[in-house]
Every structure is written in structure tokens, then in C-alpha cells.
Design a protein around this nucleic acid. Structure first.
Length: 679
DNA sequence: TACAGTATAAACATAC
DNA sequence: AGTATGTTTATACTGT
């Protein structure tokens, strides 16, 4: 199982990298033969890619973990369709759903769980050292070692993951470290496997696979020497966990004849057991024989209790977070305060902590849970009209209200700088950035010291900044070229060393009508993306559908609808996208002069530049613009849609760029300039 | 329903 | 000839 997952991931990632070259020859009509134009993405696996791999695996593990728990806690009547539903959420989607901190928290939880399992194991062992060992000696020790090894690797994985999330990319991961991470990255370590480790009843084949998955270049039969890490971790090796006195015995006798919570899909659902049982009778026999009241079953039961406990704690935390978010979204920044109407979540209401009243109105509330919330809280109020939300918030039913009206001043909403780490997120996670090509291109250009880039440099920027653009190069490169040519705001300038592309800021601002809230475009774009991923059919894409597809706002919308928050759909989608976007930029490197002279006419929230607010948190800015600083129009292109300049709300200090040239190659994500919008 | 914005695909042209 | 770059057209999708 670990082996399979690892191989799948590995299969996927190389495709991302090799896709740069392999795809190039396969597609891209006449326009794009993207040979090896991406110097920094071709060839060897980069640390970033490995990190991405790691993230994928961690996510997979987390997902599997949750699925396992979900199935383990299933009610007797759970149908297959119900159970399989959660699996529709891919790790990619989890990445979208969960913020990096949340993912981190999830991993932490998983790790804590494993630790508890280990502690249980050893506690029991110490307590009852003489209890029967259900597994032959060598086999057992090997398994325990493997389990401990797995735990250690999980810890290391998590550390890596946290590091990755927090690192801001200042220190590129050393290839060796990356390789270690890859090795350590647990494959979708699903809890079933862990259960087997605890129970010590896995087949020898599973043990072998486990050993392989953990590497260690030795086979499972060679126990102790094969797992030096386990010893170094000071985890005592003992025999099996043994049980306690009480066993929640759910035997066949008490169970209904046709259904059993531990039986489904023709197999035993006992944790760690996947024994196939053709019918209920067979299952009953199996249950009685294999899962009778003994130490092992008792231990497993206790572990399961711990699992449930952990999940409940986590659920409480997340519910609390959600409550805070919802509460916050209730009100407008300027609005006095409608806090007393917390949204009700029927499913988790009992777990919600009604502490929202404690928050000062209009201010972002600190997350109550340990993990930090992803989405900038300040975004909320501007995203959703308070009135609309209010109107429907009481109801448990789907609130379908007018709402979705974005306040124009919302674009001035400052985006929390603590979210800047998302830039690292996009850099490593294979998640499609919710920005338009035009926005990205513009951002790339404006970010450069000279405010001009060659096409190839733009390519490189894409691949450097977004893991997502390290694959399907033919598609997105074609799109880049298409955008460059199509939009008048991109001006081609003949340079000494060839042609470079610049941005005509005036034209860029013209692109959107004054009323264009950006939500529309964003949603259109994002929904479009969710429906038509850029992958070319039959090329590398198979894995993406499973592990790389990200949770599009459309999916989010559906999820929200399912939760009874239909009225939040568009706004919430936009908020998600916006939050993602905002994190692309890290604190700006701006000189006073440049900041003062580069005010933008408007900042579409859907653009990268919305993050500029980090420079000017109050959102006020002067309409004065110096487009010529950006571009030297050489020829004018016919913009498909030309809109007259107007009194569009002046907002953010958008196009802040370096006034001092910097070596563009050296500057990376960490020095992202807040320029503008990204949708 | 029309429209605008966007993405994607592809054909074609040009320069090196 | 092959590739990179650039232009243009067509189509599909979304939200307004």
C-alpha cells in the first residue's frame, strides 16, 4: 500500500517535470513547440518538486486517515456510496480546502494519533509484558520496528512539511535533503496499515510491503538490524499491545442479521482488517474467530477510541474556527456588529463554541485553535454583504439570497501579511493559481527589475512560481503567448537582446469595465478551470485527475451548498480565490519613491496586485498613474474589448515595483512585488 | 438571450 | 528543417 502510493506519486511528479519536454513535441499546434525553453524546469528533479511530492503524499496520507476514520465511525446503515463520497476529495482539493496551516494541523493530528498509538502499545506492553504475543517473535518485532519507523518518518515528514510551509523559500532545499524527504515521505500511509502494525496480524506480504515502503533496503525478515532509526528513536521495542479488561465487543450475536457496522463491501471493516467475507454469515465467523475478545482486540478498540477522541477534538477546533470565520463574515468592517447571530451548523452545532461574542466587532478575530486560519479574516466583510448574510443566516436550510455583492472598497481590504506564505504554497503545491494568465503575466513583468521580460523569462517565472505550471507546458505557454498577443496591455518592445514584453498599465486597467468586480471574472475563470483542466487528454493527466486535481471554487460552491450556505457560493469562492491570490506576494520591496509614483488606477481584486495593500493597508491611493514607467508602446494591438477609462474606484497602491533594479534571476518568490491582481 | 471575459486549441507566419 | 516566437481565429464556458 505504501509502495503503491509512493509509486503513484513518483509517477506523477516526474511527469510534471518531464512534461516540459515530453509534452512539447506532442502538442501545441503550430504555435508552441516548447522544447527546452524552461531551463530551470527541465531535467533533474528540483527540490521544490520533491517538496511537492512530499506534500502530495502527506495530503494523501491525511486524506486516507480521515477516510479511515470516517469509515470506522460509520453507522451501521452506511452505504457504499455514502462512504465513498469523501473520497471524491483529492489531496489537491484538500490543499484548496485547507489552508497550509490547516494542512499542517491535520498532519500534526495524524502524528499525534500515531504517537498515541505507539504509547498505547508500549504502555500496554509494559503493563502486561507477559501477555500472549499473537505474532511470531521475529515477525512481530519486525512489524513493530516498521511501525515505529513509520512513525519516525511521519514526524520527519511533518517537520519537513512545516518547514516547507514556513520557509518562505529563502533557503532552497538541498537536493540531498529533498531526497531524504522523498524517502521519508510516507506514502498514503493509511490507518489500516497502522492498525495492522498495532495489531500485528498483517500478512507477511503486507509486512514485506511495509518494509519496502519504508525502504531500509532490507527485507522484513531481517528485523532489528534493518531499522536503525527505530533504535535511535529510543522507542522501546516490545511485544504486542495487549488489552485491557473491557472490550467493546461487538460480536455477531448482537448484530443485525443483514447489516453490521463492521461489515461492508464484502469485507471486514475492523480496523486493520480487510478480510473478505462473502456474506454476513462468513463475516460473523470471521468476527468471532479473528476479532474475539482478546488483548489485541481490546487494544485496537482503545486505539480507536483515541482516534475518535482526536477527531472530535479536531472537529471541535475546526468548528470553532469555522464559527469564527462565519461570524466574522457576518459583518462589514464599518458595520457595528451583528454578532449575535452565529450561523448554525446543524451537524456540528454542539461542538461549536459560541465565543464569537467575545470578539470585538469589526476586528479580525484571532483563531481560537492552534492553527492559523488561511483566509485573511479581513477579507470576509468585504466579500459578503452583511445584510444578505444576515437575512439568511438563521436558517439551517440553504440560504439563497441576493448577496454576492462585492463592495468596491473591498479591493482596498488589506490582506494579512501572515498569509504571504502561500506564495510558497503555490510554488510547491500543484495547485492552479486562481489568477488569469494576463494577471500572472503582468505580475511577472512588473516584478522584474526592468519591468520587462522576454517570453522565455515569463515562462520561467511561471514555472518558478507555480508548481502547477511545471506541467502541461504546451498548453499554458500557448496561453501565455496568446494573452501576450491578444491583450493590448502587453506591449512588445524590441530590445538589444531581442524582444521583451512590457505592460501598458493604462491599457491593462482599461481591460475591465468599472463595474467589473472581478468576482465575475474570477468565477468564470475559475469555474472554467475546474471544468477544463489544462491537461491534455491522455498526457500525464491521469494522475492529476486523482491526485492533482484541485478543489475548484465550483467544488467549494457545491460543498457550501451542501452545508446549507448556498448564498455564500460566489462570494466564498471569490474569497477563496482571493485569499489564495493574496498570499502569492510576500511583503513588498518598495522604495518610497516607487511606491509613490506607481499608484494604480484600480486594482481588480482578481489580480495579483490586490496584495499591494500590504504596502498601503488602508487602501487609499492616488489615481495618478505613470504607465510609461512600465511600458514603451511600440505597436498597438487591438484589444478585443476596449472600455473607456472612467471613474473606477481608486484603490490599492497597485503597481508598486522596484525602482532599483535587482538581478531578476536572484529574486524569487520571496521578493515578490505586490503588483496587482491575480484572479 | 446577449454579452464580456477567459481559457484552450490550433493554424499560420516569421525569425533564427 | 527544426524551433521559438508571435498573431490570429475558433470554440467553450461562466456570470451578469
Amino acid at each position: 500500500m505504501m509502495v503503491e502510493s509512493a509509486s503513484e506519486t513518483i509517477r506523477t511528479t516526474p511527469s510534471n517535470q518531464n512534461g516540459v519536454s515530453s509534452l512539447s513535441s506532442q502538442s501545441d499546434g503550430g504555435g508552441g513547440r516548447e522544447g527546452g525553453s524552461n531551463g530551470d524546469t527541465n531535467g533533474e528533479i528540483s527540490p521544490v518538486d520533491l517538496l511537492h511530492l512530499q506534500q502530495q503524499q502527506a495530503l494523501q496520507a491525511a486524506r486516507q486517515f480521515l477516510l479511515q476514520q470516517a469509515s470506522g465511525l460509520n453507522s451501521p446503515g452506511k452505504s457504499k456510496s455514502e462512504m465513498s463520497a469523501p473520497q471524491m476529495i483529492t489531496p489537491q482539493q484538500m490543499q484548496q480546502i485547507l489552508s497550509p496551516p490547516q494542512l499542517q494541523a491535520l498532519l500534526q493530528q495524524q502524528q499525534a494519533l500515531m504517537l498515541q498509538q505507539v504509547q498505547h502499545t508500549h504502555t500496554h506492553t509494559r503493563t502486561h509484558p507477559l501477555l500472549l504475543d499473537p505474532v511470531p517473535g521475529w515477525h512481530l518485532s519486525s512489524k513493530q520496528l516498521a511501525f515505529q519507523q513509520q512513525l519516525i518518518q511521519m514526524q520527519q515528514l511533518q517537520q519537513q512539511h512545516i518547514l516547507n510551509l514556513q520557509r518562505q523559500g529563502l533557503v532552497p532545499l538541498q537536493p540531498t535533503a529533498a531526497m531524504q524527504s522523498l524517502q521519508q515521505a510516507m506514502c498514503p500511509s493509511d490507518l489500516q496499515q497502522l492498525w495492522k502494525e498495532v495489531s500485528g496480524v498483517p500478512s507477511s506480504e503486507e509486512a514485506l510491503k511495509q518494509a519496502e515502503g519504508l525502504d531500509l533496503s532490507t527485507n522484513s525478515s531481517n528485523s532489528t538490524s534493518a531499522f536503525p532509526k527505530a533504535a535511535s528513536a529510543h522507542i522501546p521495542l516490545h511485544s504486542m499491545p495487549n488489552g485491557q479488561s473491557h472490550t467493546p465487543k461487538r460480536d455477531s450475536h448482537e448484530e443485525h442479521a443483514s447489516s453490521h457496522p463492521l461489515y461492508g463491501h464484502g469485507e471486514c471493516k475492523w480496523p486493520g482488517c480487510e478480510a473478505l467475507c462473502e456474506d454476513m454469515g462468513q463475516f460473523i465467523k470471521h468476527l468471532n474467530n479473528e476479532h474475539a475478545l482478546d488483548d489485541r482486540s481490546t487494544a485496537q478498540c482503545r486505539v480507536q477510541m483515541q482516534v475518535v477522541q482526536q477527531l472530535e477534538i479536531q472537529l471541535a477546533k475546526e468548528s470553532e474556527r469555522l464559527q469564527a470565520m462565519m461570524t466574522h463574515l457576518h459583518m462589514r468592517p464599518s458595520e457595528p456588529k451583528p454578532f449575535n447571530q452565529p450561523l448554525n451548523l446543524a451537524s456540528s452545532g454542539s461542538l461549536l463554541k459560541r465565543d464569537s461574542e467575545a470578539y470585538p466587532e469589526g476586528l479580525p478575530h484571532p483563531p481560537t485553535s492552534a492553527a492559523t486560519p488561511i483566509t485573511p479574516l479581513r477579507q470576509g466583510p468585504s466579500v459578503i454583504s452583511s445584510s444578505s448574510l444576515h437575512t439568511h443566516s438563521h436558517s439551517h436550510t440553504h440560504a439563497v439570497g441576493p448577496i454576492r455583492r462585492r463592495n468596491s472598497d473591498k479591493y482596498c481590504t488589506p490582506i494579512a501579511s501572515e498569509l504571504a506564505q502561500n506564495c510558497e504554497f503555490y510554488k510547491n503545491a500543484d495547485v492552479r493559481p486562481p489568477f488569469t494568465y494576463a494577471s500572472l503575466i503582468r505580475h511577472a513583468i512588473l516584478e522584474s527589475p526592468e519591468r520587462q521580460l522576454t517570453l522565455n523569462e515569463i515562462y520561467n517565472w511561471f514555472t518558478r512560481k507555480f508548481a502547477y505550471f511545471r506541467r502541461n507546458t504546451a498548453t499554458w505557454k500557448n496561453a501565455v503567448r496568446h494573452n501576450l498577443s491578444l491583450h493590448k496591455c502587453f506591449v512588445r518592445v524590441e530590445n538589444v537582446k531581442g524582444a521583451v514584453w512590457t505592460v501598458d498599465e493604462v491599457e491593462y486597467q482599461k481591460r475591465r469595465p468599472p463595474k467589473m468586480t472581478g468576482e465575475k471574472n474570477l468565477l468564470a475563470y475559475v469555474n472554467r478551470c475546474s471544468l477544463q483542466p489544462p491537461e491534455k487528454p491522455g498526457i500525464i493527466t491521469h494522475t492529476h485527475t486523482h491526485t492533482h486535481s484541485h478543489l475548484s471554487p465550483t467544488l467549494v460552491k457545491n460543498m457550501i451548498s451542501g452545508l446549507g450556505f448556498g448564498s455564500l457560493n460566489a462570494s466564498y469562492q471569490a474569497a477563496l480565490a482571493e485569499s489564495s491570490l493574496s498570499l502569492l506576494n510576500s511583503p513588498p520591496l518598495v522604495t518610497p519613491t516607487s511606491a509613490a509614483s506607481l499608484n494604480m488606477l484600480h486594482v481588480g481584486h482578481d489580480d495579483v496586485s490586490s496584495t499591494v495593500e500590504q504596502v498601503n493597508s488602508n487602501g487609499s491611493c492616488s489615481p495618478t498613474l505613470s504607465p510609461q514607467q512600465y511600458s514603451h508602446p511600440v505597436h498597438v494591438k487591438e484589444e478585443p474589448t476596449e472600455l473607456e477609462e472612467d471613474s473606477r474606484p481608486v484603490s490599492l497602491l497597485a503597481g508598486v515595483t522596484h525602482s532599483l533594479p535587482l538581478p531578476s534571476d536572484e529574486r524569487d518568490l520571496e521578493e515578490d512585488l505586490p503588483t496587482e491582481e491575480l484572479e
